[in-house]
Structure formats: C-alpha cells, structure tokens
C-alpha cells in the first residue's frame, strides 16, 4: 500500500479488510469484498472504477453514512466501524465535508443558510455561524450570491455553494461523489480547478469519479473493480494505464 506522506504522520484514514454486503430479496450483493488502504492528511485521492464497482458504497462507508459489514475503519484515530447512529452523526459533522453529484442543497434556503447548516448542528451561535459561512462562500468566489436560493444559481454555482458548505466546518476531509457529473465540461473544469486550489491549501480530498481524465489529474488514484481494489498508485498511471506518467504531484499545478 502506498503512503504518500511521511511515515511519521498518523494516517487520517485506515481501512482494513472492509466488506459491505447488501441483502436483496434473499440474495447477497457483495458491494465491497475486503478492501484495505490508508489515506494521509493533505492527500488528494481519486477512486475510480466502472459503474457498479462499489465506488459509492465505499464513499458512504468513508463518510460514515453507512457502516461496514465486516472489517475495521479508523478515521482520525477513532474506530467508527461500530459506532452508534448518534455518534456517527457527530463524526460526520466534525470530520467530513460531503460534495454530491446532485449538489443536495436545501431548495428553499439561501446559499448562506445552506452553508451555515453544518455549523447549526455543531451548536454554533448564529452570529459566528454567519461570519464563517460568508468566509467559506468567499473561498469559492460566491460572496455576491449568498442571498440567492439554489434555483437562482447555475449548476456550477450550486456546486460551489455545496463545496463551501463542505468546507465551512473545517472537516478532516472532503468527500466528493462525481462532483462534475451533472455539469458541462467547462463548468466541471472550474470545479476541478477549485479542488486543485483546495488541495494546495492543504485539504484532504477524496474524489469518486468514473472519468479517467479527471482521475489522472489527482496525485493518487485507487481503482475498484467488482468490490475489490485492483490498482492503487499515481493518478495518471492508475487512471490511464500510463506507466511513463510524470510524478503525479507535477500534474496538479499546471
């Protein structure tokens, strides 16, 4: 298993032999068949694979929306594999920033209110909440749209609101499931640039995508097939099969 950062820093994520089995009408669907890997702070990792390979399932487990059927998942030195529902809610609030393909904004609330939401559940007072939400919207260059509702924003703007919401509570990592899937290529490119910015700023990013080109721009990629990890290495190499790829770190900056 690769470990990009130095051996000294503890891993943010440590997944050991995790499985996830669904029971559908008496039949077993083994969505994850024993995956093991680690992710360190500051990494940007793409998870790729064909449709049905288990990417979303893995993403849900990493995001503590779902728990493994077996195996162990350590997040920020906490074993979250056997936590109660309420404990998981707290972990989601403190450690994870979700970015979804369909944005998942509350349609009747303004951009600002949407971004405030994680802080609401953290119990922060309204004034501080609003300030932080404003700052997060500034990071995604949307200060001028903060009083708009989602239906008054373009797709790219909506996704940037979602990214601000993921950032606002300063989580340990950002989890993005096909964040450009619902965007045209130009807008998608904007969002990828934003990810690159966030990566340079030191955020830990996990990006689920089925687009090899996008994965190739990540320093590291993990390929899933049929619920198993079949490749783990520099993004270009794993995504494009390009064994002569330049070191992944260099790809990010251009």
């Amino acid at each position: 298993m690769s470990q990009v950062n130095g051996a000294g820093s503890p891993r943010l994520i440590d997944v050991q032999d995790v499985t996830r089995v669904f029971h559908v009408g008496g039949e077993e669907v083994r969505a994850l068949r024993g995956v093991s890997f680690g992710i360190s702070r500051g990494e940007w990792v793409a998870i790729i694979g064909q449709s049905g390979s288990g990417k979303s399932t893995l993403m849900n487990v990493l995001g503590c929306l779902d728990t493994p059927s077996s195996g162990r998942y350590m997040l920020n030195n906490k074993d979250v594999s056997h936590m109660t529902d309420d404990e998981l809610a707290v972990v989601r609030n403190e450690e994870i920033g979700f970015i979804f393909q369909t944005f998942q904004l509350l349609p009747k609330e303004t951009a600002l209110s949407n971004v405030e939401l994680p802080l609401v559940y953290r119990g922060m007072r309204a004034k501080e909440r609003r300030e932080r939400a404003r700052a997060a919207l500034a990071k995604v260059h949307l200060e001028h749209r903060m009083h708009h509702r989602p239906n008054e924003l373009s797709g790219g703007q909506r996704q940037r609101v979602a990214i601000a919401r993921a950032l606002v509570a300063e989580p340990s990592m950002l989890l993005a499931d096909e964040p450009t899937g619902n965007l045209d290529s130009a807008t998608g490119e904007e969002i990828v640039r934003l990810f690159e910015e966030l990566h340079r700023a030191g955020n830990t990013l996990v990006l689920v995508t089925h687009e090899p080109k996008l994965a190739a721009r990540c320093p590291r990629a993990i390929r899933l097939s049929d619920g198993e990890i079949v490749a783990d290495g520099p993004g270009r190499q794993v995504a494009l099969g390009d064994l002569h790829a330049p070191p992944a770190q260099a790809a990010g900056g251009s």
Partner: peptide, 11 residues
C-alpha cells in the same frame, strides 16, 4: 438525508 449527512442526529 441532507440534514443527517451534515450532522443532524435522529433526535
């Protein structure tokens, strides 16, 4: 679902 993902507990 959104509220739960962002940290709302069942209660």
């Amino acid at each position: 679902g959104i509220r739960r993902a962002l940290g709302a507990r069942k209660r």
